[in-house]
Amino acid sequence: MEPVDLLVLATLIFVAAALYSSVGHGGASGYLAAMGLLGVAPAVMKPTALILNLLVASLAALQFGRAKAFSWSTFWPFAAGSIPMAYLGGLLDVPPSAYKVLVGLVLLYAAYRLWRRPTMAEKVVRKPPLLLALLAGAGIGFLSGLIGVGGGIFLSPLLLFAGWADPKTTAGVSAAFILVNSAAGLLGHTSGVMAIPPEGVWFVLAAVAGGALGSRWGSRRFGHARMRRLLAVVLVIAGGKMLVA
């Protein structure tokens, strides 16, 4: 990769990590979009995105956990359903083109609802039904492992729209969910890690720096209204990426 392309890609990764981590996300869809824009080989994109996602989600989970924005009772059913399915999805190499278009449209609609109705997430928080949480986690996990993301872009709007978490707890739960999902997906795609080029270390440094900055600001400085608006922006980016991929 040419030095200019390397600098541009590292900068895009930094920006994506800062933006996504501010709402508890790892940023995989942003990394995939950036790498696709710069012409990175498909065989490199998936494992690279999962590794960066793992690092940034770790930082986000730590920061939101310190800010007491996490609920174990909300997290574990989704994680229990997602982990084995994320591993299974990581084993497969099938481009789910039609489904990605549908998911992209859903994410854009979710972003619209969050932006236009800022009070919708202020409803009384209730515990998610166990079976529904397990099934939703399984579906999100499989899709996440298949395309190389952590699943936060799907879990966050679900938690908010269903009234299962407030915005900050949603961010904390999503960060932990992305962490375990990325690890499971990467475990299922270990062969792809060998394809990552040496300059990948610069991507790691950029992602860690952006993730540290974004997660700190998101966990300590942003109120619920701003968190919803930020999440809406993230969903637009992720949804747009799904549609044009």
Results as ranks from 00 to 15, higher is better:
183 A>Y: 04
82 S>D: 09
136 A>R: 04
184 A>N: 08
79 A>Y: 05
168 K>Y: 02
151 G>T: 08
165 A>I: 04
71 S>Q: 10
135 L>H: 09
158 L>A: 10
133 A>F: 08
86 A>P: 03
163 G>W: 03
173 V>Y: 04
129 P>Y: 13
129 P>T: 12
185 G>Y: 01
146 L>W: 04
82 S>C: 12
185 G>L: 07
91 L>V: 10
115 W>V: 08
73 S>R: 15
72 W>P: 05
179 L>M: 15
102 L>N: 01
70 F>L: 12
113 R>S: 08
86 A>Q: 03
104 G>C: 11
74 T>G: 14
85 M>C: 09
83 I>N: 06
138 A>N: 03
183 A>D: 05
190 T>E: 09
119 T>R: 15
112 Y>N: 06
139 G>K: 11
103 V>T: 12
113 R>P: 01
123 K>L: 04
87 Y>Q: 04
161 F>A: 13
91 L>Q: 14
108 L>T: 08
118 P>I: 07
100 K>D: 02
96 P>G: 06
81 G>Y: 07
184 A>Y: 03
150 G>N: 08
114 L>G: 06
109 Y>K: 14
115 W>T: 08
88 L>D: 10
125 V>L: 09
175 A>E: 08
89 G>H: 06
177 F>G: 00
144 S>H: 03
141 G>S: 08
158 L>Q: 04
118 P>E: 10
134 L>K: 13
166 D>Q: 11
131 L>Q: 10
94 V>A: 08
128 P>N: 10
169 T>M: 13
134 L>V: 13
141 G>Y: 00
150 G>R: 00
176 A>D: 10
177 F>T: 02
89 G>L: 04
145 G>N: 09
84 P>M: 11
122 E>V: 12
136 A>Q: 10
103 V>C: 10
70 F>W: 05
171 A>Y: 01
191 S>V: 12
168 K>T: 05
140 I>N: 00
104 G>K: 01
117 R>P: 00
98 A>T: 13
94 V>F: 12
167 P>F: 02
170 T>I: 05
143 L>P: 05
124 V>A: 15
71 S>N: 09
142 F>L: 14
125 V>Q: 13
159 L>Q: 02
170 T>Q: 04
81 G>V: 07
120 M>H: 13
130 L>G: 00
192 G>E: 02
115 W>G: 11
183 A>P: 04
148 G>T: 07
150 G>M: 07
190 T>Q: 14
133 A>I: 07
72 W>D: 00
85 M>A: 10
90 G>A: 12
187 L>M: 14
101 V>W: 11
103 V>I: 15
119 T>Y: 13
186 L>V: 09
117 R>H: 15
122 E>P: 07
93 D>R: 15
172 G>N: 11
141 G>K: 02
182 S>Y: 01
84 P>Y: 12
152 G>H: 06
114 L>D: 03
180 V>A: 12
131 L>E: 07
78 F>Q: 02
172 G>I: 10
97 S>F: 12
154 F>R: 01
184 A>S: 14
97 S>T: 14
132 L>D: 01
114 L>M: 14
154 F>H: 03
120 M>Y: 13
157 P>V: 10
128 P>W: 01
174 S>E: 01
86 A>Y: 01
118 P>A: 11
117 R>W: 14
108 L>I: 14
115 W>F: 15
160 L>W: 09
165 A>G: 12
82 S>P: 03
130 L>Q: 00
